[in-house]
Protein backbone atom coordinates (compact mmCIF):
# COMPACT_ATOMS: atom_id res chain seq x y z
CA UNK A 1 0.00 0.00 0.00
CA UNK A 2 2.23 2.81 1.29
CA UNK A 3 5.81 3.40 2.29
CA UNK A 4 6.66 5.56 5.26
CA UNK A 5 9.73 6.67 7.12
CA UNK A 6 10.05 7.08 10.88
CA UNK A 7 13.12 8.68 12.48
CA UNK A 8 15.13 6.60 14.93
CA UNK A 9 14.35 9.01 17.79
CA UNK A 10 10.59 8.74 17.14
CA UNK A 11 10.51 4.97 16.99
CA UNK A 12 10.36 4.31 20.73
CA UNK A 13 7.41 6.66 21.12
CA UNK A 14 5.63 4.81 18.31
CA UNK A 15 6.10 1.46 20.06
CA UNK A 16 5.12 2.95 23.43
CA UNK A 17 1.85 4.24 22.00
CA UNK A 18 1.16 0.89 20.38
CA UNK A 19 1.83 -1.01 23.61
CA UNK A 20 -0.43 1.36 25.54
CA UNK A 21 -3.30 0.91 23.09
CA UNK A 22 -2.99 -2.70 21.95
CA UNK A 23 -1.75 -6.11 22.92
CA UNK A 24 1.66 -6.24 21.26
CA UNK A 25 3.69 -9.44 21.04
CA UNK A 26 7.33 -8.94 20.16
CA UNK A 27 10.80 -10.43 20.55
CA UNK A 28 12.22 -9.93 24.04
CA UNK A 29 15.45 -11.17 25.61
CA UNK A 30 15.36 -14.16 27.92
CA UNK A 31 18.83 -14.84 29.30
CA UNK A 32 20.98 -15.34 26.20
CA UNK A 33 18.06 -16.13 23.87
CA UNK A 34 14.94 -14.43 22.60
CA UNK A 35 11.25 -15.25 22.80
CA UNK A 36 8.04 -13.76 21.44
CA UNK A 37 6.19 -12.36 24.42
CA UNK A 38 3.62 -9.71 25.27
CA UNK A 39 5.46 -6.39 25.53
CA UNK A 40 5.06 -4.51 28.78
CA UNK A 41 6.89 -1.48 27.43
CA UNK A 42 8.80 -0.40 24.38
CA UNK A 43 12.20 -0.94 26.01
CA UNK A 44 11.64 -4.70 26.08
CA UNK A 45 11.38 -4.90 22.32
CA UNK A 46 14.58 -6.34 20.84
CA UNK A 47 14.46 -5.97 17.09
CA UNK A 48 18.15 -6.89 17.08
CA UNK A 49 17.25 -10.51 17.99
CA UNK A 50 18.74 -13.30 15.91
CA UNK A 51 16.03 -15.93 16.20
CA UNK A 52 13.42 -16.74 18.87
CA UNK A 53 13.43 -20.07 20.71
CA UNK A 54 9.88 -20.88 19.54
CA UNK A 55 8.44 -19.58 16.30
CA UNK A 56 5.57 -17.08 16.38
CA UNK A 57 3.01 -19.71 15.29
CA UNK A 58 2.44 -20.21 19.03
CA UNK A 59 0.32 -17.06 19.02
CA UNK A 60 -2.29 -18.75 16.78
CA UNK A 61 -1.56 -22.36 17.56
CA UNK A 62 -0.61 -22.38 21.25
CA UNK A 63 1.47 -25.24 22.61
CA UNK A 64 -1.56 -26.31 24.60
CA UNK A 65 -4.92 -25.10 23.30
CA UNK A 66 -8.36 -25.89 24.71
CA UNK A 67 -10.67 -26.80 21.81
CA UNK A 68 -13.76 -28.09 23.63
CA UNK A 69 -14.86 -27.45 27.20
CA UNK A 70 -17.31 -29.80 28.86
CA UNK A 71 -19.33 -29.97 32.02
CA UNK A 72 -21.42 -33.05 32.62
CA UNK A 73 -23.30 -33.71 29.37
CA UNK A 74 -22.80 -30.20 28.03
CA UNK A 75 -19.91 -29.17 25.81
CA UNK A 76 -18.95 -26.32 23.53
CA UNK A 77 -16.07 -25.09 21.43
CA UNK A 78 -13.91 -22.44 22.99
CA UNK A 79 -12.46 -20.12 20.40
CA UNK A 80 -11.87 -16.98 22.43
CA UNK A 81 -10.06 -14.57 20.24
CA UNK A 82 -8.04 -11.57 21.29
CA UNK A 83 -6.81 -8.98 18.85
CA UNK A 84 -3.05 -8.71 18.91
CA UNK A 85 -0.17 -7.22 17.02
CA UNK A 86 2.67 -9.58 16.30
CA UNK A 87 5.53 -7.14 16.01
CA UNK A 88 9.02 -7.73 14.63
CA UNK A 89 8.62 -11.03 12.81
CA UNK A 90 11.54 -11.99 10.57
CA UNK A 91 10.75 -12.72 6.92
CA UNK A 92 11.44 -16.48 7.25
CA UNK A 93 8.86 -16.75 10.04
CA UNK A 94 6.39 -14.75 7.94
CA UNK A 95 6.87 -17.33 5.18
CA UNK A 96 6.28 -20.13 7.67
CA UNK A 97 3.11 -18.48 9.00
CA UNK A 98 1.85 -18.15 5.46
CA UNK A 99 2.33 -21.93 5.08
CA UNK A 100 0.49 -22.79 8.28
CA UNK A 101 -2.26 -20.36 7.28
CA UNK A 102 -2.74 -22.29 4.06
CA UNK A 103 -2.66 -25.70 5.73
CA UNK A 104 -5.12 -24.81 8.48
CA UNK A 105 -7.42 -23.03 6.05
CA UNK A 106 -7.60 -25.71 3.34
CA UNK A 107 -10.05 -28.63 3.24
CA UNK A 108 -11.64 -28.59 6.67
CA UNK A 109 -10.99 -25.00 7.73
CA UNK A 110 -9.83 -24.94 11.34
CA UNK A 111 -11.38 -22.01 13.15
CA UNK A 112 -9.28 -22.76 16.24
CA UNK A 113 -6.26 -21.51 14.30
CA UNK A 114 -7.83 -19.21 11.72
CA UNK A 115 -9.83 -17.06 14.14
CA UNK A 116 -6.66 -16.17 16.07
CA UNK A 117 -4.74 -15.62 12.87
CA UNK A 118 -7.36 -13.36 11.35
CA UNK A 119 -7.58 -11.23 14.49
CA UNK A 120 -3.85 -10.56 14.39
CA UNK A 121 -1.86 -7.82 12.73
CA UNK A 122 1.58 -8.97 11.67
CA UNK A 123 4.42 -6.50 11.42
CA UNK A 124 7.63 -7.92 10.04
CA UNK A 125 11.11 -6.58 10.66
CA UNK A 126 14.41 -7.08 8.90
CA UNK A 127 17.01 -9.51 10.21
CA UNK A 128 19.58 -7.41 12.08
CA UNK A 129 21.53 -10.32 13.51
CA UNK A 130 21.73 -13.79 12.05
CA UNK A 131 21.28 -16.98 14.06
CA UNK A 132 24.30 -19.23 14.26
CA UNK A 133 22.73 -22.05 12.22
CA UNK A 134 20.50 -20.07 9.84
CA UNK A 135 20.44 -20.92 6.13
CA UNK A 136 17.48 -18.87 4.95
CA UNK A 137 19.67 -17.44 2.17
CA UNK A 138 19.67 -20.73 0.26
CA UNK A 139 16.37 -22.48 0.95
CA UNK A 140 13.11 -21.75 -0.88
CA UNK A 141 14.39 -18.30 -1.82
CA UNK A 142 11.85 -18.05 -4.65
CA UNK A 143 9.03 -18.19 -2.06
CA UNK A 144 8.44 -14.62 -1.01
CA UNK A 145 7.06 -13.65 2.40
CA UNK A 146 3.39 -12.70 2.25
CA UNK A 147 0.32 -12.55 4.41
CA UNK A 148 1.75 -9.91 6.77
CA UNK A 149 0.31 -6.45 7.20
CA UNK A 150 3.41 -4.29 7.42
CA UNK A 151 7.20 -4.54 7.39
CA UNK A 152 9.88 -2.50 9.13
CA UNK A 153 13.42 -2.21 7.87
CA UNK A 154 16.10 -0.50 9.96
CA UNK A 155 18.08 1.90 7.82
CA UNK A 156 20.75 4.41 8.82
CA UNK A 157 18.75 7.11 10.55
CA UNK A 158 15.43 5.40 11.14
CA UNK A 159 13.07 2.79 9.73
CA UNK A 160 11.28 2.25 6.46
CA UNK A 161 7.72 1.16 7.30
CA UNK A 162 5.84 -0.52 4.46
CA UNK A 163 2.13 -1.21 4.81
CA UNK A 164 0.30 -3.84 2.75
CA UNK A 165 -3.16 -3.96 4.30
CA UNK A 166 -5.65 -1.72 6.09
CA UNK A 167 -4.59 -3.33 9.38
CA UNK A 168 -1.00 -2.33 8.67
CA UNK A 169 -2.00 1.13 7.53
CA UNK A 170 -3.98 1.68 10.74
CA UNK A 171 -0.74 1.52 12.75
CA UNK A 172 0.60 4.66 11.11
CA UNK A 173 -1.64 6.83 13.29
CA UNK A 174 0.36 5.75 16.36
CA UNK A 175 3.64 7.32 15.27
CA UNK A 176 5.25 10.26 13.55
CA UNK A 177 5.61 8.96 10.04
CA UNK A 178 6.51 10.84 6.87
CA UNK A 179 6.28 9.63 3.32
CA UNK A 180 9.35 7.58 2.50
CA UNK A 181 11.87 8.96 0.04
CA UNK A 182 13.35 6.94 -2.81
CA UNK A 183 16.66 6.64 -0.94
CA UNK A 184 14.91 5.18 2.12
CA UNK A 185 13.37 2.54 -0.13
CA UNK A 186 16.60 1.71 -1.91
CA UNK A 187 18.51 1.58 1.39
CA UNK A 188 15.95 -0.82 2.83
CA UNK A 189 16.05 -3.00 -0.27
CA UNK A 190 19.80 -3.14 0.02
CA UNK A 191 19.65 -4.07 3.72
CA UNK A 192 17.20 -6.90 3.07
CA UNK A 193 19.09 -8.20 0.06
CA UNK A 194 22.45 -8.14 1.78
CA UNK A 195 21.35 -10.30 4.69
CA UNK A 196 20.52 -13.14 2.32
CA UNK A 197 24.19 -13.67 1.59
CA UNK A 198 25.32 -13.68 5.19
CA UNK A 199 23.93 -16.96 6.57
CA UNK A 200 26.50 -19.12 8.37
CA UNK A 201 25.08 -22.25 6.74
CA UNK A 202 24.55 -22.79 3.05
CA UNK A 203 22.67 -25.38 1.04
CA UNK A 204 25.00 -26.31 -1.78
CA UNK A 205 22.08 -26.93 -4.11
CA UNK A 206 19.54 -24.14 -4.35
CA UNK A 207 17.02 -25.50 -6.85
CA UNK A 208 14.33 -26.88 -4.59
CA UNK A 209 12.90 -29.19 -7.24
CA UNK A 210 16.18 -30.99 -7.84
CA UNK A 211 16.65 -31.29 -4.07
CA UNK A 212 13.12 -32.68 -3.76
CA UNK A 213 13.70 -35.25 -6.51
CA UNK A 214 16.98 -36.45 -5.14
CA UNK A 215 15.79 -36.62 -1.54
CA UNK A 216 12.69 -38.50 -2.69
CA UNK A 217 14.86 -40.97 -4.58
CA UNK A 218 16.87 -41.58 -1.41
CA UNK A 219 13.73 -42.84 0.37
CA UNK A 220 14.71 -46.50 0.21
CA UNK A 221 18.31 -45.93 1.24
CA UNK A 222 17.53 -47.31 4.67
CA UNK A 223 21.16 -47.47 5.72
CA UNK A 224 21.55 -43.73 5.06
CA UNK A 225 18.53 -42.79 7.19
CA UNK A 226 19.49 -45.17 9.98
CA UNK A 227 22.94 -43.65 9.99
CA UNK A 228 21.53 -40.09 10.09
CA UNK A 229 19.33 -41.04 13.03
CA UNK A 230 21.62 -43.31 15.01
CA UNK A 231 22.09 -40.67 17.72
CA UNK A 232 18.45 -39.55 17.74
CA UNK A 233 16.81 -39.45 21.17
CA UNK A 234 13.34 -39.30 19.54
CA UNK A 235 12.69 -36.24 21.69
CA UNK A 236 10.90 -34.27 18.97
CA UNK A 237 12.70 -30.99 19.76
CA UNK A 238 13.33 -30.44 16.05
CA UNK A 239 9.56 -30.62 15.49
CA UNK A 240 8.65 -28.44 18.43
CA UNK A 241 10.85 -25.50 17.43
CA UNK A 242 10.01 -25.72 13.72
CA UNK A 243 7.91 -22.86 12.36
CA UNK A 244 6.34 -25.07 9.67
CA UNK A 245 5.54 -28.07 11.89
CA UNK A 246 1.87 -28.06 12.80
CA UNK A 247 1.08 -31.56 14.03
CA UNK A 248 -0.79 -32.03 17.27
CA UNK A 249 -2.24 -34.56 19.65
CA UNK A 250 -5.66 -34.24 21.28
CA UNK A 251 -6.19 -35.19 24.90
CA UNK A 252 -9.11 -35.00 27.30
CA UNK A 253 -8.51 -33.88 30.86
CA UNK A 254 -10.89 -33.79 33.78
CA UNK A 255 -10.92 -30.95 36.26
CA UNK A 256 -10.59 -31.81 39.95
CA UNK A 257 -14.41 -31.87 40.28
CA UNK A 258 -14.48 -34.92 37.96
CA UNK A 259 -17.50 -33.39 36.23
CA UNK A 260 -16.01 -30.75 33.99
CA UNK A 261 -12.90 -30.65 31.89
CA UNK A 262 -11.26 -29.76 28.62
CA UNK A 263 -10.43 -31.40 25.31
CA UNK A 264 -7.06 -29.91 24.49
CA UNK A 265 -4.74 -30.04 21.56
CA UNK A 266 -1.03 -30.06 22.20
CA UNK A 267 1.94 -29.81 19.90
CA UNK A 268 3.16 -33.20 18.82
CA UNK A 269 6.14 -34.28 16.75
CA UNK A 270 6.65 -37.05 14.20
CA UNK A 271 10.09 -37.83 15.65
CA UNK A 272 8.56 -39.17 18.85
CA UNK A 273 8.26 -42.93 19.05
CA UNK A 274 4.48 -43.18 19.50
CA UNK A 275 3.50 -40.72 16.82
CA UNK A 276 2.30 -43.27 14.24
CA UNK A 277 1.55 -46.13 16.62
CA UNK A 278 -1.88 -47.74 16.87
CA UNK A 279 -3.30 -50.41 19.16
CA UNK A 280 -4.89 -53.36 17.44
CA UNK A 281 -6.33 -54.97 20.54
CA UNK A 282 -5.25 -58.29 22.08
CA UNK A 283 -2.16 -56.42 23.28
CA UNK A 284 -0.96 -56.04 19.70
CA UNK A 285 0.34 -52.78 18.31
CA UNK A 286 1.44 -51.53 14.96
CA UNK A 287 3.92 -48.71 14.58
CA UNK A 288 3.97 -47.43 11.03
CA UNK A 289 7.28 -45.61 11.62
CA UNK A 290 8.90 -47.85 14.14
CA UNK A 291 12.59 -47.12 13.58
CA UNK A 292 14.33 -43.85 14.35
CA UNK A 293 15.53 -43.75 10.76
CA UNK A 294 11.91 -44.01 9.53
CA UNK A 295 10.91 -41.03 11.63
CA UNK A 296 13.98 -38.99 10.76
CA UNK A 297 13.32 -39.64 7.08
CA UNK A 298 9.66 -38.65 7.43
CA UNK A 299 10.64 -35.23 8.80
CA UNK A 300 13.18 -34.56 6.06
CA UNK A 301 10.70 -35.75 3.41
CA UNK A 302 8.03 -33.52 4.84
CA UNK A 303 10.30 -30.50 4.85
CA UNK A 304 11.72 -31.07 1.38
CA UNK A 305 9.14 -32.91 -0.73
CA UNK A 306 5.73 -33.91 0.61
CA UNK A 307 4.14 -30.47 0.87
CA UNK A 308 5.89 -28.81 -2.08
CA UNK A 309 2.96 -29.07 -4.48
CA UNK A 310 0.70 -27.29 -2.03
CA UNK A 311 3.19 -24.71 -0.85
CA UNK A 312 5.00 -23.98 -4.09
CA UNK A 313 8.32 -24.65 -2.39
CA UNK A 314 9.86 -26.57 0.48
CA UNK A 315 8.26 -26.58 3.93
CA UNK A 316 11.49 -25.25 5.40
CA UNK A 317 12.40 -21.60 5.77
CA UNK A 318 16.01 -21.95 6.94
CA UNK A 319 15.59 -20.46 10.42
CA UNK A 320 18.10 -22.93 11.89
CA UNK A 321 16.04 -23.61 15.03
CA UNK A 322 16.06 -27.39 14.59
CA UNK A 323 19.84 -27.45 14.29
CA UNK A 324 20.20 -25.31 17.40
CA UNK A 325 17.77 -27.34 19.48
CA UNK A 326 18.95 -30.85 18.63
CA UNK A 327 20.85 -32.41 21.54
CA UNK A 328 22.80 -34.74 19.27
CA UNK A 329 23.16 -32.11 16.56
CA UNK A 330 21.84 -34.40 13.84
CA UNK A 331 18.72 -32.47 12.83
CA UNK A 332 20.34 -29.88 10.57
CA UNK A 333 18.60 -30.15 7.17
CA UNK A 334 21.63 -28.54 5.50
CA UNK A 335 23.87 -31.46 6.42
CA UNK A 336 21.32 -34.06 5.41
CA UNK A 337 20.40 -32.43 2.09
CA UNK A 338 24.00 -31.64 1.15
CA UNK A 339 24.96 -35.27 1.87
CA UNK A 340 22.14 -36.62 -0.30
CA UNK A 341 22.95 -34.22 -3.11
CA UNK A 342 26.64 -35.18 -3.09
CA UNK A 343 25.91 -38.81 -3.92
Amino acid sequence: MNKYFIKAQDFETFVTKLVEAKQVIGPVAKKSRFVFEKLKNSKELRLDYDVTVLPPKKEFFPTCQPIVKFEGDKFEGCVNVEEKILFGVHFYDIKALDMTDLLYNENHRDINYMAHREAATIVGSNVQNIAERAFFGTVGVHVKPKGHDAFLTKIDDGYLFETYTDKGEALVSFGTFTKAKKEHESNALDVNNRVMGKCPEVLDYVGYESVANKVRKAFNNTAFWEDCAKDCFSCGSCNIVCPTCYCFDVQDNWNVDQVSGTRTRKWDGCLTEDFAKISLGFGAQENFREKRGDRFRHRIMRKTTYLNAKLGGPACVGCGRCSMSCTSDIADPVNVINKIMEV
Partner: peptide, 16 residues
Protein backbone atom coordinates in the same frame (compact mmCIF):
# COMPACT_ATOMS: atom_id res chain seq x y z
CA UNK B 1 -3.87 -43.23 13.83
CA UNK B 2 -6.47 -40.81 12.49
CA UNK B 3 -6.49 -38.49 15.43
CA UNK B 4 -8.16 -35.37 14.05
CA UNK B 5 -9.91 -36.87 11.02
CA UNK B 6 -9.62 -33.62 9.09
CA UNK B 7 -6.11 -33.73 7.64
CA UNK B 8 -4.37 -31.51 10.17
CA UNK B 9 -2.77 -33.41 13.05
CA UNK B 10 -0.31 -35.41 10.93
CA UNK B 11 -0.57 -38.78 12.68
CA UNK B 12 -2.06 -40.73 9.78
CA UNK B 13 0.20 -39.25 7.10
CA UNK B 14 1.76 -41.61 4.54
CA UNK B 15 4.07 -39.64 2.30
CA UNK B 16 1.98 -36.72 1.09
Amino acid sequence: RMKCGVGKCGHCQIND
